[in-house]
Structures are given as structure tokens and as C-alpha cells.
Design a protein around this nucleic acid. Sequence first.
DNA 1: ACCATTTCGTTAAGCTCGTAAACTGTTCAT
DNA 2: ATGAACAGTTTACGAGCTTAACGAAATGGT
Lengths: 161, 161
Amino acid sequence: MPTQPHHQTDPSAEVPDLDAFIGYNLKRAYILVETDFRAAMGDEGLSPRVFSALSFIVQFPNITQSELARQLGVERSGLVAIVDELEMRGFLTRALVPGDRRVQALIPTAAGRAAHGRALDKVRAHEERFFAGFTEEERQTLLALLLKTRAIAEDTGGGTE
Amino acid sequence: MPTQPHHQTDPSAEVPDLDAFIGYNLKRAYILVETDFRAAMGDEGLSPRVFSALSFIVQFPNITQSELARQLGVERSGLVAIVDELEMRGFLTRALVPGDRRVQALIPTAAGRAAHGRALDKVRAHEERFFAGFTEEERQTLLALLLKTRAIAEDTGGGTE
DNA sequence: ACCATTTCGTTAAGCTCGTAAACTGTTCAT
DNA sequence: ATGAACAGTTTACGAGCTTAACGAAATGGT
């Protein structure tokens, strides 16, 4: 341990700004977007994770919980509460699958599809408003770089796989 | 989009891919980066929030807890545990301030500055490795767009301010 | 056909991060 | 002097996630 000269306030060039790190800004940015998302969805609205789960189920009916968990990047056990909520709201049914009695296919109800449609409008409006200060090109660039970030990490076993 | 769940192809064609939303990808990307961050710091290493707090304290010695909370975008009450941890590790001291007996200035110790230096090296290596598939321009663009995201939201009262 | 392994959904326990509310002590404005 | 505002703290709580274990069902090797 080298002895340090004490006390001299030293905002020197040694200490880099936290803003220089992608990870830090990723976190800060996500918190802001998420907060705005929740506000846009309202008190009875869907949380981000429930919305994304419902989106998958509407887009891919009959998906199993394990497959959905894999797609969402969460554990199977963690998905149970999400599916429970969607089922309790009447947005999906857990259906038996003929060939395999272990699995339960997730099937959106009409109410589920309708709720998803309404939620989708809100989410689109939220992102539209939130990123109003961005040009269309900036939005696309950000999206592409985030997708690339996911791609380089999710392939190399960096995910929850 | 190469990897779709192989269940049932979208019958309505109305449902957009979740990957089209910035918020969703922001979350997925952050989780991946954060996981890699923790792995890079090791079991006894600093968590993201503690590292960022220590960075501020090293860069701005004598900062108060309220001011630090504001800078980090968290509540004052939430900062207590973070400062407790840094103090317990011997990385800072809570110092009395002559003019105002309510405030306690946060002063990094020599050990704190040393630990921050080591952590900094690890974080830099982590980001370097994580974003190795990115060009320098891509990294800078991503950083700039994340900063812009923060800027448009933190100004308009969207933050914790 | 048998047994070991794997998979699916689930429960239970626990962790981390974060907030909100309430309280003490201190400072400030009038 | 008194009321409002502020700094730090404690407590309670919630959201979101993980790991470990389990029963039921399917699968694969021999």
C-alpha cells in the first residue's frame, strides 16, 4: 500500500467520469425509460415483464412456459408468477397438450389479445413521446446497437442459458 | 430475425416483434452487461451501485450524501446502505462539517482510492472485452445515444429530481 | 422392459435493489 | 420564537429475480 499525500482535493485527470462507461449509462437510461413506461401504462397497466410475456404469447400462441422463459431470458420458476397474473386477468389459458402431459400451452384469450392491442398502443405512444427528441435515424441506430449488444453476449453463453 | 420460437407463425401479422422496442432491448442489454460486470468484479468485488458511488466520492471528495444521492439518481434513504458498505470496508469516512452539523462529508480513504483504482481497471477491462465486437465508433455512438436518452428525460423532470 | 436421466411446471426460501413514510436533529426565514 | 425545510437514518415493504428441491411425465441407453 503506497502512502498517499492526504487531503488535497484532487479532481485530476486520473479519475474518469462515470459517464464514460456504457454500463452506467445503460442502467441510468433504462431506469428512466422503465419509469416512463410504467407511468404510461397506468396503475392497473401491465408491467414491462408482463407486457413482454403477453406479447410473445399473442405472437406465438401455444408456446410452452419453458420456451417462453428461454425467449424472455428468465428462469422457468420466475415465469410462473407472470403467467399466473396473465391467467388471473383472464388474458390467457393454460391448455393441455395431447402429446405431452408435462407441458401446458399458453393460449391468449380474446380479452388477452384485446388487452395486448391496447397495451401496444400505449407502449408505442410512450416510446414515441419519450424519444421525441431523437431523429428517426438516431432511434434506429440506438435500437441496432442494443440488438448488437444482445447478440454479442447472448451467443457466447453470456445469457441466462 | 433468425431465431424465432418454432411454434406457430404469427397469424395476424399485426403483432410487431418485441425487438422493435427500445425499452425492451435496453433492459435485455443492461442485464447482460450487468451480469458480466459482476462476474468481472468477482465475489468480493464492488457491485455496480457501490462502484459508482465510490467513483463519485473519489472524484468529488467531501460530497454530502444528499448531493451524492441526487447525482446517482437514488433516494437519500437508499444511499445509506451503500455508504455503510463503503465505510465498513474502510473505503471512506463520514466526516463532520464545521458549518453544518446536519451534513456529513464523504471522504475517501487511501484504501478507498486504491480500491477504486483497482476496480476501475477491472471495469475498463470488462467493457473492453464485452464490447470487443464493436468498433470504436459504435461504442462512442452507443454512449452518445445513451447520454442523450438520459439528457432528454432527466431535464424534463423525468428523473428522480 | 428397465432404470437413469432429463424435462416441465411448480413451490419455497432468499437475495438485491429500490421506494415511501416516519422520526431526530439541525438550520433557516420571518 | 416558531414554523418550514433539510440531512441522515430506520423501518417496512414491494418488485424482480435466482437457486434448490420436488412430483409427474417423457426419453434414452442397454
